[in-house]
């Protein structure tokens, strides 16, 4: 059933790398380096503005992949990766969307597990991809059964 979503994308959503959100995020991961929040440090840096920590894309809205209704509970985050062309700049607009990359099922120590790979993209105003982020989500048999009800 999940396999039928492979290749499907959400519609792009405009996100802003918000100054306050970056500071709050940096604080939550105990990484309050001035480059993330102090305006002066940003101005004097290579990018002439503040940047966001590498796992910040977690906060963006990637829109909805039509029909894909993953349960709020019971999902296991198996793997995660980020790829960057450059750091994200505070204040910039990014157009974000997600795509179902692949789905497979296999036997493991947790029984028959489903592995759903979702890639998220962030493009600048010109359409250049600035970052991609890939999440592997594990769905146990029990979670998949609950989804079918």
């Amino acid at each position: 059933m999940l396999a039928s979503y492979v290749g499907k994308c959400s519609k792009k959503v405009k996100n802003v790398v918000e100054r306050g959100a970056v500071k709050k995020f940096a604080e939550a991961i105990g990484d309050l380096h001035p480059i993330y929040w102090e305006e002066e440090a940003g101005k004097n840096s290579r990018y002439q503005t503040n940047i966001a920590p590498p796992t910040f894309p977690r906060v963006f809205d990637y829109g909805v992949i039509e029909g894909l209704n993953l349960p709020a509970k019971g999902l296991i985050h198996g793997e995660q990766s980020f790829h960057y062309d450059r750091p994200l700049l505070v204040g910039e607009e990014l157009f974000c969307y997600a795509k179902v990359e692949s789905y497979d099922e296999k036997q493991s120590s947790m029984g028959n597990i489903g592995r759903l790979v979702i890639t998220s993209y962030g493009e600048d105003v010109l359409g250049n991809i600035i970052f991609t982020s890939t999440a592997t989500i594990i769905l146990t048999e029990a979670v998949r059964k609950a989804m079918m009800v």
Binding site: H33, S81, F82, P87
Partner: peptide
């Protein structure tokens, strides 16, 4: 990732998995 933050002036994290 904050192990790398002190080095922001020298480069950036291109891939992190």
């Amino acid at each position: 990732a904050k192990l790398f933050t002190p080095y922001v002036e020298q480069g950036f994290i291109q891939d992190y998995s």
